[in-house]
Design a protein around this nucleic acid. Structure first.
Lengths: 348, 348
DNA sequence: CGCCTCTTTTGAAGCGCTTCATTTAAACCA
DNA sequence: TGGTTTAAATGAAGCGCTTCAAAAGAGGCG
């Protein structure tokens, strides 16, 4: 009945607000962006007009005019993987301190979508991009060596070191697991994981191998799997049983999921048990690693910290795009639990 | 040394491309948006200039000028919860068919951040928003009844039905679980979950209660917990043991995590086992529900379908914002597994 | 009261694009 | 070949904002 602003129909612009408040366009802009430049009375007038009209600033116009953006894009390889969610959380935490927002795009393990998402963010003119690919997918990117948008890599090293990046020392992680088992008195180790062409898997294996080699009397073999999911762990478990229980007294699994699969199969054998007969370590500190029936000793990747460090590197890069790319390597941490320590370890 | 375009320095604009190709600005635009209006030869010239200069269209400018956007915002309550990731996947699948992109923002269970994220997307002038809140958080939104951006709700019903929405029939899910247990011959049921003020939990309980009431001879009690994580399941398990094993012969857990916790505790008791002594159902079809040592019978929420339906509703709304809000309720599905069927059920 | 300084406010230019009324070139037909 | 259609290309207007030089207003002081 009245002529109150229509309900969310046409979105009011700054000009509408200015007219309604009886001030100039620039004053509205200042009220929002440089309030200290606007007299108290004026500011109040403007703010109440904004409220009354339900004005919402158009960020597309803002960033076009200002030539910068306050959002950062985060390209994640797989939202189903909690490691990437941790990265997102860490990045968000760090960026929120600088009043920046995070837009996440999910590539869902598909390299084509990763490229598409990268392009999407380029077009959107976000302030910067944090790219967390799955292994070697970046190679497929169209402008791998020279992206216009400031970019930081997580979990994968730029072959040319053209980008700043955050990685975790996978070799050290593998070594940590093997050393832990050896320290517990185990001698006949087996590494379970694959495929080997996955950089992370291969480095974990190399680390485990080296650590074992450094210890006379200990030996390690490898059982290559086709993936690192629970299913692959179960398959591997059956193969191990076929080789005869007692062939190995410890397993370094390439992932927590593999470890869970192994335990499910091995624990089915009467009179055989984890960890007394075979101690097992996982990798990733998957949420369920600590929650499963037999809490799994694991190597923890500092996902949140990686995200936070990546955010910091990105902010540096945005501030000075010309500076040399700085790379950070974080150390994984061993979290011993029941699957190696047995009853010595209790939850909580 | 040469004056080739500087490496990713200043981003070339359409005007640069036009100059380089020796055509008018509008022609470049047409090459990109209405190629059929441009002569073959011209188009090629433009395209090669684009490639040569490394031109990337500025979407902020595009959507400002065009007055529309090709991205949809997805506000997720908790990326750590695979249910929400499923929703994202479904929405993406549906929107990709219409060449629309999805930007995800994570509220991380914080209602304030949810509001902030909503505002962020409003400002970004995305084409529409799919909001998947955790329970009743929407009530905190500043303009709950009248958002300017087309919005669709997932997993939570708009109190005033002002928005289209997709929900799942939680009551039916609870009934499904209870009926299943009763059909297996169980009679002394217990519902474990909480807190009750969570709509979903309460409705699951109501459904279970009604289904049980419909069956003479069967009874159901409730054990309210403070949350629906594994920890809460373990706590509840200890309480149940304190009441004496045998008090109940079946449990309807409000979530898979609770079910896992319960099983961990109950299975520790010698001579007592799931499901022979107590059958247990979970809820959510969490990824680990089928992968845990005792695969858990569960009620599956069609997360991906919910996301896809939400996307369709949103597209409808974008096309005709004035149309009445349409709401869709999907039915959950019971997935019987070992935790109720025992050895009758085998993985795969 | 008048002059000078500091604070506010103004409004036009321009960010990079889409659109569309015009102009120009090509194609067709008698 | 001249006139008419149709296809292609042009370029100015304008999307909603930030910026900034310039104008206006407010104080301050002798």
């Amino acid at each position: 009945m009245t002529d109150t602003p229509p309900h969310g129909r046409t979105k009011p612009s700054m000009a509408d607000v200015a007219a309604h408040a009886g001030v100039a366009l620039g004053t509205v802009s200042n009220t929002l962006n440089n309030p200290e430049k606007v007299r108290e009375a004026t500011r109040r007038k403007v703010l109440s007009s904004i409220a009354e009209l339900g004005f919402v600033r158009n960020d597309a116009a803002r960033s076009l005019a200002a030539g910068n953006s306050t959002s950062v894009g985060l390209v994640l390889a797989d939202l189903g993987n909690s490691f990437f969610v941790d990265i997102a959380r860490g990045a968000e935490r760090a960026l929120r301190r600088h009043k920046m927002d995070v837009l996440i795009v999910n590539s869902d393990v598909d390299p084509d979508r990763e490229v598409h998402n990268l392009e999407l963010l380029d077009r959107s003119r976000v302030a910067g991009i944090i790219l967390a690919p799955l292994d070697t997918a970046l190679a497929k990117s169209p402008h791998p060596e020279n992206r216009a948008t400031p970019t930081v890599l997580v979990n994968f090293e730029s072959p040319s070191l053209a980008y700043p990046g955050v990685t975790v020392d996978e070799r050290h992680g593998g070594a940590l697991a093997a050393s832990h088992l050896i320290a517990l008195g185990r001698r006949r180790l087996l590494f379970v994981g694959g495929p080997r062409f996955l950089t992370a898997v291969n480095q974990r294996w190399e680390g485990a191998e080296q650590a074992t080699a450094a210890h006379p009397g200990a030996s390690i073999e490898i059982l290559e799997t086709r993936g690192v999911n629970i299913r692959h762990g179960r398959d591997a478990g059956r193969q191990i049983l076929a080789r005869g229980p007692g062939t190995y007294d410890a397993i370094v699994a390439a992932s927590d999921l593999v470890a869970i699969g192994l335990i499910q199969i091995l624990n089915e054998v009467p009179g055989f048990s984890v960890p007394s007969d075979i101690a097992i370590t996982g990798y990733d500190n998957n949420h369920f690693a600590s929650e499963s029936a037999i809490p799994i000793s694991t190597v923890s990747q500092p996902g949140e910290e990686m995200g936070a460090v990546a955010a910091d590197l990105l902010l540096e890069r945005i501030a000075d795009p010309a500076a040399a790319a700085r790379s950070v390597t974080l150390e994984p941490r061993l979290l011993p639990r029941t699957s190696t320590l047995g009853e010595m370890w209790r939850r909580d």
